[in-house]
Write a protein that binds this DNA or RNA. Structure first.
Lengths: 187, 187
DNA sequence: TTTGACATGTAAGCCGTTACATGATTTA
DNA sequence: TAAATCATGTAACGGCTTACATGTCAAA
């Protein structure tokens, strides 16, 4: 059976459900501590994708009533879902990265900025990068002896390197800033 | 006069037009060689943003007929546009980065992948990173003695560091891969 | 006892992409 | 002379976010 290709988000949600049957809210919480850093998802979006995937027969769902909590709808992956997911992971071309960096937009228009603004922009950016660096590094550390989380751990290693690159950039930008400001004042 | 906040794209287009009066197609070509790496834009989206910004009074436009080429609509920034742009650059909080990395999604689900797939994923990723590294480095080099492009040059320096981080990651991932594959076979 | 957090979802609407359209100019 | 490229836009649609809704539980 031919399936029209899903969105990236569709495959990701499928992959997350494939780990074990999950309800929307729960899945969103898991996404928040696992893939958020390289594939952010909103809770609402997850709900709509779950519904769509069920409509396509890639997931099935049952309502589960809970004591003292609202009834939830738990989704499981179907055989067809497993097959679509595996094929995507194993064969689909990797999508292009199209990242936005709001800081760099400010830097690009740096001539229009006051030197105070430039300084605080770098300071804030550095602080955020440092915080994320810590978070990733802690994750890497924590999973050092858990072989079953080797691949997730590897994604955190990526995070450390990415944040380190930002920190390196801030250092170099700070060093160049005086002459950049001077040049833009001269112009 | 109160202006409802624009989208990031709106401000970026405003900023690009602020450099000099520009038509849509031309602006898209410039975006391709300047901000693409940290703020990709599609041509179509640029057209719709230009129209919207004119509707808000931040840009004005005139038709310009050309010899042997279709008539184009050239946009210029208005005084109000200048003021909105400056205020955004100088005061607006910097938006959160929400980047997707399609490669890391594959890595995250690495247990489901064949070792061949994992290897070619890393190879391809490395090759792309290396190509971009070269591109950025060339840009940095080319602008080394052009003080008026100091800030754009700084964005390319960022690019070099970002791609370098990816290359470092690939190296580390390759080193870890054998034991990751072993662990996932054992499980 | 009110405020905040947890839990589960729905709906409206902008953002952004892909596909469509059209004509002139160059190239094979 | 057909095919590819440049140039300039338009329109439809899906993706994704923000805001809306509702009830329970814990804490101050």
């Amino acid at each position: 059976m031919e399936i029209s290709p899903l969105s990236q988000t569709g495959y990701v949600v499928l992959g997350l459900v494939s780990r074990r049957p999950t309800a929307g809210h729960e899945l969103a919480r898991f996404a928040e501590i696992s893939i958020k850093n390289f594939f952010p998802l909103t809770r609402s979006h997850i709900y709509t994708e779950l519904e769509k995937l069920e409509g396509l027969g890639l997931l099935s769902s049952t309502e589960v009533t809970q004591d003292r909590l609202p009834t939830k709808r738990v989704y499981s992956i179907t055989d067809e879902g497993e097959s679509v997911l595996s094929q995507w992971l194993e064969e689909a071309p990797v999508e292009e990265e199209k990242d936005r960096c709001p800081l760099l937009v400010r830097v690009f228009f740096g001539e229009r900025l006051s030197s105070e603004r430039l300084t605080t922009l770098l300071d804030d950016y550095e602080e955020a990068a440092r915080a994320r660096w810590d978070w990733y590094a802690g994750f890497v550390d924590q999973l050092v002896d858990e072989p079953e989380y080797g691949f997730p751990r590897l994604t955190a290693i990526f995070g450390v390197k990415r944040e380190q690159a930002k920190l390196d950039f801030v250092a170099e930008a700070r060093a160049l800033l005086p002459e950049l400001i001077k040049a833009s004042n001269d112009a």
